[in-house]
């Protein structure tokens, strides 16, 4: 059984005049230590699925199990605080906080002391390949690549093992994109994260252990190059 089990999940946006079924009967599973890519056309429901995995919304029907517990029964704020983090295309750092403050934030939320949080944050910032110079900088003074790396450090600060990302390389050039791809892959393979990335980036998809294709709300498994569909 995977760390995350998605069982027959559907989600509809209830509009005023129409109901949009963005996710339709999706069943899949995600393991620790693996790097997943979800690809698909714009509007196919990828972001919606990610928000369900992040516990930002509950499925209209079906259930997501995390470590055996039903998402609908979890305290989902706590789930995001302790277990799952999301990295976004537009980085979404706190604009008024420095890099260091951004990374310490989740730890201070958890009640850790400032000194301890800063020590861990510095370590995490170093691990995404940024130097001390970045510590006191606010997002406006950083490049996109730097911001996204700080965002990954912040996502790790909470200490959970689920890393979700929505187009994390979408605002970056190829060089920075590749750097982010490699870091996410390392997180899966060396630190045991379940890394689930929604992407248009073919390079990133190539690196993934498994690729899902989202099409009109439905999820299918894509065969990896050199593999057969039956392997999945």
């Amino acid at each position: 059984m995977g760390l995350i089990e998605v069982k027959d999940v559907s989600y509809s946006y209830q509009g005023k005049y129409q109901t949009i079924e963005a996710v339709k009967n999706v069943t899949c599973s995600f393991d620790e230590g693996a790097f997943y890519a979800i690809v698909g056309h714009s509007g196919s429901g990828k972001t919606t699925l990610l928000s369900l995995l992040a516990g930002l919304d509950l499925p209209t029907s079906g259930e997501i199990y995390v470590d055996g517990s039903a998402m609908s029964a979890l305290n989902r704020d706590r789930y995001r605080l302790k277990t799952a983090s999301v990295v976004y295309q537009s980085f979404n750092l706190f604009p008024l906080l420095t890099a260091l403050e951004n990374v310490t934030y989740p730890m201070q939320l958890q009640g850790r002391s400032k000194a301890e949080a800063e020590a861990v944050a510095k370590q995490l910032i170093a691990e995404v390949g940024l130097g001390e110079k970045i510590w006191r900088r606010r997002p406006l003074m950083m490049s996109g690549g730097e911001q996204q790396r700080v965002a990954i450090a912040r996502a790790r600060a909470a200490g959970g093992k689920i890393m979700l990302a929505d187009e994390p390389t979408g605002n970056l050039d190829a060089k920075n994109g590749n750097m982010i791809t490699n870091q996410l892959k390392l997180l899966a393979h060396e630190r045991g994260y379940a890394v689930i990335v929604v992407t248009h980036n073919e390079e990133l998809a190539k690196q993934a252990d498994a690729v899902y294709m989202m099409q009109d709300g439905q999820l299918t498994t894509l065969a990896k190059e050199g593999q057969h569909e039956s392997d999945a």
């Binding site: 930002l56 706590r78 989740p106 912040r154």
Partner: peptide, 14 residues
């Protein structure tokens, strides 16, 4: 708004 959204995303309760 986006700052609050980030807080929510990081697990700060409403």
């Amino acid at each position: 708004r986006s700052e609050v959204a980030v807080m929510r995303s990081l697990g700060v309760s409403q």
